[in-house]
Design a protein around this nucleic acid. Structure first.
Ligand SMILES: [Mn+2]
Ligand SMILES: [Mn+2]
Ligand SMILES: [Zn+2]
Ligand SMILES: [Zn+2]
Lengths: 154, 154
DNA sequence: AACGCCGTTGAGAACCAGTCCCGATCAGGA
DNA sequence: TCCTGATCGGGACTGGTTCTCAACGGCGTT
């Protein structure tokens, strides 16, 4: 797993440093959406440390190498997610409780491929996010009801 | 057109101020994706003025009222776009030249409606963005070629 | 037309995620 | 082991956005 990173770095003649290894380790071992602070905290928890500039630089590098993706869930900061051994998926974000759930839809790949070729566009990445309210908590369900009623009358 | 704003504000018992009118005017008269600075500049050009706090507050209000949408095209700041008299659409963003083009796909609405009901989710807004390279300029087309070749070999 | 309530406005300070600086350190090939 | 160029990191800095709070202005009432 770490060999993937080693290989990508060697290919570009970039050094495989302790910090890059540790940060990649944190990313590869989690399936969650981690902020830069989350990564720094995870490092501390294993007795490692990296300056915040290095954390940001390395996360950007992992994205560049195709080993992670960057997300903005409208929280005021970015989150990162491993792409190693993970299926492509998109996100549903609950604006009430903040929960992020994922989905895969078999038709989306085809649709975006069609769109790109129609527009003479070479698609590299896509961001598909649906914001709304989930039904996990009573508060979220309450907001769902309120929103549906408002939609009917306005 | 301005009556739409007047009505939404009255309904919520919010005052219809000169600044809100001027900023909404700027938004409604443009079909482009405007930053807060763009809005302030457009105001200046018509001899009007609003403090930056007011610009941000009013843009957020227009989004809240359903009269505008907010976009993040990874430029480090947000952009806003009128929703009054505009068809729903999504965006293709060229990471080489920054151009943003739009598209509509007839199947997307159905797909997101299905997804939402499958997940017990009440969808309010969606953000669909495709990042890549367009074919508008020679530089963009050059990057398209480079990217396709890299994709074949890596 | 004047009054009064209360939300709005605006100049600037504050905030904060992310970037930059640059001297010390390190990876890794010779 | 040596050498060199890239990386690291603490802290300063940036810039978009939000906050503060006294002055102001809608707008319903009288
Ligand atoms: Mn995810
Ligand atoms: Mn648009
Ligand atoms: Zn929820
Ligand atoms: Zn382009």
């Amino acid at each position: 797993m770490m060999q993937v990173l080693r290989g990508e770095l060697r290919e570009r003649e970039l050094p495989f440093t302790h910090q890059r290894e540790a940060i990649a380790q944190v990313m590869f071992e989690s399936t969650r959406h981690l902020s830069a602070d989350d990564v720094a905290a995870a490092l501390r928890q294993r007795g490692e440390h990296a300056g915040k500039a290095t954390v940001y630089r390395t996360l950007a590098l992992l994205v560049e190498l195709g080993l992670a993706t960057e997300h903005d869930f409208d929280e005021g900061f970015k989150r990162y997610e491993t792409k190693v051994g993970a299926a492509q998926h998109d996100h549903l974000i609950c604006t009430a409780c903040g929960r992020v759930s994922t989905f895969q839809h078999p038709e989306l790949d085809r649709i975006f491929a069609e769109l790109a070729s129609e527009h003479g566009f070479e698609a590299i990445t896509r961001q598909v996010k649906v914001f709304g309210t989930c039904s996990e908590t009573a508060a979220c369900r309450e907001l769902q009801r309120a929103y549906r009623e408002a939609g009917r009358t306005s």
